[in-house]
């Protein structure tokens, strides 16, 4: 699903990633653990094609390395669900509208397509009652849950999370981790980058430690054993045939959307 093949990335004199090779399969959970400036965010930016590798090749699904056109890049990003540390919700839209925007971006313009999807995502993150609230009216934990709902609403094959609990206090962080575990449990591949070991330990996948652009050592956690970052064994993602990865349709909307959402 995602493959890094001898990928290096240099910003001027600074080498952010140095000949990094690793692979992630469908439905797998991988956590990159490392200190600040270890290269974690660069890794995510390479996956989303916000930047290009200086050398090597990044493959994401059917997008096999090289420079993509703007249209291809947009298409690639629509296959990913991205969660940021600072949430990146649009402040002038309600929770419902923020999530609905992702659905419309994916090409669903009719309300009868948009509303059930949004309501299902809201239900998944437990924010049905906050659908009409604006981001500034939510707690940090609720904002991150709204961002997660936006990331999962189009049932992407893989969810990328950049320090998803970085801005949260302990209880909200635990809630968000539990939510990520559940989403992964329903079949979505999950790639998390974090500086916190407790986050890595709180997720069920392989943990790859990254240090100054290198993979530090073999992974820990319940994932398959690997050597040099490459997966060694077969990995059977839980619930790969259903849930987030796109197989099942969302249930009917539990409640009608707010006026602002429609």
């Amino acid at each position: 699903m995602i493959t890094f093949d001898q990928v290096s990335k240099r910003y001027g004199e600074r080498l952010a990633l140095d000949s990094l090779s690793w692979q992630m399969n469908e439905g797998e959970c991988v956590v990159f653990l490392g200190h600040s400036a270890a290269g974690k965010t660069t890794l995510l930016r390479l996956i989303t094609h916000e930047t290009q590798p200086t050398s090597g090749r990044v493959t994401v699904g059917t997008f096999r390395g090289g420079r993509l056109t703007r249209g291809q890049r947009a298409l690639l990003r629509r296959t990913l669900g991205i969660i940021y540390e600072d949430f990146r919700l649009l402040g002038d839209r309600t929770v419902f509208e923020n999530i609905a925007l992702a659905v419309r971006i994916a090409g669903h313009s009719r309300d009868d397509e948009v509303i059930p999807r949004v309501m299902y995502a809201l239900e998944q993150v437990g924010l049905q009652l906050k659908q009409a609230a604006f981001p500034h009216e939510l707690s940090a934990g609720e904002r991150q849950r709204a961002a997660i709902a936006r990331a999962i609403v189009n049932r992407p094959a893989v969810i990328l999370a950049d320090e998803p609990t970085g801005a949260l206090e302990q209880r909200s962080a635990d809630d968000v981790l539990a939510l990520l575990r559940r989403i992964h449990g329903e079949g979505a591949a999950l790639l998390v980058v974090t500086t916190r070991r407790e986050v890595a330990n709180g997720l069920p996948g392989r943990v790859l430690e990254i240090e100054d652009g290198h993979l530090a050592h073999a992974p820990s956690g319940p994932g398959p054993e690997t050597e040099g970052g490459l997966p060694a064994g077969e990995f059977a993602p839980p619930g790969a045939e259903s849930g987030i990865s796109g197989a099942s349709p969302p249930p009917d909307a539990a409640a009608p959307p707010t006026e602002a959402g429609a």
């Binding site: 703007r70 249209g71 947009a74 990003r77 629509r78 919700l89 002038d92 925007l101």
Partner: peptide
């Protein structure tokens, strides 16, 4: 900022 967020979500330039 909203333009950047939409771009990250996979919106086309036209959208």
């Amino acid at each position: 900022q909203p333009i950047e967020i939409m771009s990250r979500l996979g919106a086309t330039d036209g959208f």
